[in-house]
Design a protein around this nucleic acid. Structure first.
Length: 212
DNA sequence: AGTGCGATTGACT
DNA sequence: GTCAATCGCACTA
């Protein structure tokens, strides 16, 4: 397998005090950054190519009805993992995004695999290469993400953290969020135009190759 | 204690 | 393109 475009070396951890202080800006900021997962001594790395913002007071957010045992990690100060199970089978990785006790997060929806592709493929059951981490449930499976990682500090060294490397900032494509029913018309989904690992229906992915 | 419903995916027409 | 599996969780009583 060959992956050329993205630099693998010299990924440094994101500093919490460098994270944008509001959820929407953080969701854009995370595009082009990296999720770094250490599993059995191996480093699995993916470049973030798709995110969604779940804002304070957002009716589509799990935090909308207040703090519960499940969504507690959304109320940690920005930069912590909120991991939950959707539809009984798919784990979702989010990054808490506001001050402590506010309740908001950015959903990581897709990664471009960078390192550890063989392990990711094994964890995923050898799917087509393009689908390794295309979609929130798939990326969690590729990186062995589950409830055990809920609440971890993604700005600290450990089993999973957020990183960045050198490179031009990404100008995101924007669309409505996928798979929600309430507040479904708000443009809070962001993606890297043209990236093959972006999920979602073609009509939402303007700027992708072959799409008007 | 019972019920309804997903921030999805994979299989199938 | 359509569609159902699947189960934890929040909500009602």
């Amino acid at each position: 397998m060959t992956i050329a475009r993205t630099p693998q070396a010299r990924i440094r951890r994101l500093r919490r005090d460098a994270l944008p202080a509001d959820t929407e800006t953080l969701a854009r900021h995370l595009l082009g950054r990296f999720v770094v997962r250490t599993l059995d001594g191996e480093r699995l790395v993916g470049r973030i190519v798709e995110t969604e913002a779940y804002l304070p007071g957002d009716a589509a957010s799990h935090a909308f009805r207040g703090r519960t045992p499940r969504n507690g990690s959304m109320f940690l100060r920005r930069g912590h993992a909120y991991v939950y199970l959707a539809y009984g089978s798919a784990w979702m990785l989010n990054v808490s995004s506001e001050s402590a006790d506010v309740g908001a997060a950015v959903l990581i929806r897709a990664l471009e695999p960078v390192s550890g592709l063989a392990t990711m493929a094994r964890l995923r059951g050898d799917p087509p290469a393009r689908d390794l981490a295309r979609g929130p449930g798939r990326l969690a499976q590729a990186l062995a993400i589950d409830r055990a990682l809920d609440g971890l500090d993604l700005c600290a060294a450990g089993a999973i953290w957020l990183g960045e490397s050198d490179g031009a900032p990404v100008e995101p494509g924007v669309s409505v969020r996928i798979g929600i029913t309430r507040d479904a018309d708000r443009p809070l989904r962001y993606y890297v135009p043209g990236n093959r690992n972006v999920s979602g229906p073609a009509r939402l992915n303007r700027g992708m190759p072959g799409i008007a």
